[in-house]
Structures are given as structure tokens and as C-alpha cells.
């Protein structure tokens, strides 16, 4: 869904008043661009797939075990997030937890309670690459409403406070912005990227690509699309089944009880992360599993850059 130009303009004050009336959160990307006093989230998935979630309790009572399902704690929330982050929710998380049957019962509740306010981007940062993976700085696909901070006020589409129509000059400004962004945008990755990468699974280039990675989980934990989780029990005679984020970067992620490990070596784990986002997920769902927010690039302690990795392997496969 792209800008219709048919939206309305509200003043910053009015916009803030509306936010304050709702239970609003903003992701750090949005907060760093938009100076609003809202509680911040390191990544939008922390609302939908909290890092720690008790799924059910169990306890030993009066000679028998009991299992007590826990309905997810959830309330209506307004989340301000960048277009790439909204895409992560709609294209990836919804795909896995809603559309892939059966839907995840706690995700369903939290998702229904979530209103996505997509905040458009007026510039690209050094880490941004949304347009390489089919995104756009002004797209609000899947969102409930769209806000764009402009010098003369906040341009709004979808749900939200009333406002006035744009003046012709203001509309012109907006068009200029769209034009500038189009000029600055990076080209999309080749259409066959998922196939190219898949065909390069066994190439030696992965040695070189995977070299610097420390195999920590900073990238995957902060990634808005990484959804892998662990189910880990807590307690003996009473306790909980806890769902918590897990990472394909961790050596024990795929460790069998028999001690066999199909991805025992760091190279295999790096390859898994790249291919899951740029090959496996797209081959299944027809869209990239990466939204180009650049968080992983920024968070990486050693500046391991997934953009370079994809380009390097694709160039080998071509």
C-alpha cells in the first residue's frame, strides 16, 4: 500500500495528544527519528512474541499432575513502527504464527490487540536496505494507519485524528520527497536471488562469508523477523513451560539428544541465517524473510554485514 496523497494533515500537538490517549509504544528506529516521549521497544517482535512467555503451568497436587493453560496477557496497544518493521509483522510473523495452520493461540490474541501505526521514513540511513528486499520507505502495507512527519505537520492516512486537506504547496513538497526517495533508493535484489542462493549452498564462498561472525545472537534477537523460539521447562514439581527466543546462531539450536548436530559448525549456522531469510522463506512464501531494517548490521559487534554476504554469494552463483 503506497501513499495516496489523499491523506490529511494534523499538527504535531494534535498528533501527540492522540498518541498519549492511546497506550502507545514506539520502536527504537522510530524514536531515534521522531522525538516523542514513548516507551521504546528494541524490536517490534517483543510485543507479539515476548522474549519470555509462560505458556502453561504444571504442578503436582494431591497425587496427580495438573496442567493449567495460561491465556496470554495482552491489552490494546498502539505501536509506532517503521515501514520495514511493519512489513516484518505482516509478511513474516503473521505468516508463521497466523497463516501457517494451526495459528498460535497467544499470538492471535496479541495481534488482534495491536494497532500498527506505520511511520514513514523521509531518508535512508547507512544501514537501510528496505528497497533491496521489496520494501519502500513510505509503504504501509498491512498497517492500520500511516504517519509521515513533515516540516509543516504530520501527514496521516488511515485511522487516527481528523485533520485538514493538504494545500497544493504542501502536496508538492510531499511529491518532491517521494521523488527524492525514489532517486536515493537502492535497486531491488535480482528476482531469482532465492534460487541463486539455494544453488550456491555448497559453494566454498561461504567459508569466506562466514569468517568474521562471532556466532552470538545479537543479530537474530534484535531482528524483527527472526521468530525462532525454544520451549523450555522451568521447575520440577511445579513450574511452567516457557517460550523464549532462540537463535540459529547458537550451537545447541539443532543439537539432537543423540549428540548428533546437523549444524555443528559456525559456517553452517551463518549459512542457515542468510538462507532462511533470503532463500528458504522466499521459496516457501514468495517473499523475503528480511525487511532490510539494518538492525543486524548495526548491532553486530564485528560489523558482519548480511547485505555483503547476500551479494557475495549471489555474485558467485550468477
Amino acid at each position: 500500500m503506497r501513499l495516496s496523497y489523499e491523506g490529511r494533515l494534523v499538527s504535531y500537538e494534535e498528533f501527540l495528544r492522540w498518541l498519549q490517549a492511546s497506550k502507545a509504544f514506539a520502536t527504537e528506529i522510530v524514536l531515534s527519528r521522531f522525538n516523542i516521549a514513548l516507551p521504546s521497544l528494541p524490536t517490534p517482535k517483543s510485543l507479539l512474541l515476548p522474549q519470555r512467555e509462560e505458556l502453561y503451568h504444571f504442578l503436582w497436587g494431591k497425587r496427580e499432575w495438573k496442567v493449567i493453560p495460561l491465556p496470554p496477557a495482552s491489552e490494546k496497544v498502539l505501536l509506532l513502527l517503521a515501514p520495514c518493521e511493519a512489513k516484518a509483522v505482516v509478511h513474516v510473523l503473521d505468516e508463521v504464527f497466523l497463516k501457517n495452520a494451526p495459528p498460535d493461540s497467544s499470538y492471535v490474541v496479541r495481534r488482534e490487540n495491536l494497532t500498527l501505526l506505520v511511520v514513514g521514513c523521509t531518508f535512508f540511513e547507512a544501514t537501510c536496505f528496505c528497497t533491496r528486499v521489496g520494501g519502500h520507505p513510505l509503504s504501509w502495507e498491512g498497517g492500520n494507519c500511516f504517519a509521515l512527519p513533515l516540516p509543516f505537520g504530520v501527514y496521516l492516512e488511515g485511522e487516527g485524528p481528523e485533520g485538514r486537506a493538504l494545500e497544493p504547496l504542501e502536496k508538492e513538497e510531499l511529491e518532491k520527497l517521494v521523488e527524492r526517495l525514489a532517486k536515493e533508493a537502492l535497486k531491488p535484489l535480482p528476482e531469482k536471488t532465492p534460487e541463486y542462493l539455494y544453488s550456491a549452498f555448497e559453494r566454498e564462498v561461504w567459508e569466506e562469508v562466514a569468517w568474521g561472525c562471532l556466532n552470538c545472537g545479537a543479530c537474530t534477537f534484535l531482528c524483527p523477523t527472526c521468530f525462532c523460539f525454544d520451549l523450555a521447562l522451568e521447575g520440577k514439581l511445579r513450574g511452567a513451560m516457557v517460550r523464549t527466543w532462540d537463535s540459529c546462531m547458537f550451537p545447541k539450536f539443532t543439537l539432537h539428544a543423540s549428540s548428533h548436530n546437523p549444524r555443528a559448525n559456525p559456517l553452517q549456522r551463518v549459512r542457515q541465517r542468510v538462507l532462511h531469510k533470503f532463500s528458504y522463506f522466499p521459496l516457501r512464501k514468495g517473499k523475503f524473510g528480511c525487511v532490510g531494517c539494518g538492525r543486524c548490521v548495526l548491532a553486530c559487534p564485528v560489523n558482519w554485514d548480511i547485505r555483503e554476504a547476500v551479494e557475495r554469494v549471489v555474485s558467485c552463483a550468477l
Binding site: P42, L214, C216, G217, A218, T220, L222, S247, F250, P301
Partner: peptide, 8 residues
């Protein structure tokens, strides 16, 4: 968030 970046 226990990403273990510090350790690694």
C-alpha cells in the same frame, strides 16, 4: 537479552 555477544 542474553544474546551472548559479550561472551563470544
Amino acid at each position: 537479552i542474553r544474546c551472548y555477544a559479550c561472551r563470544n
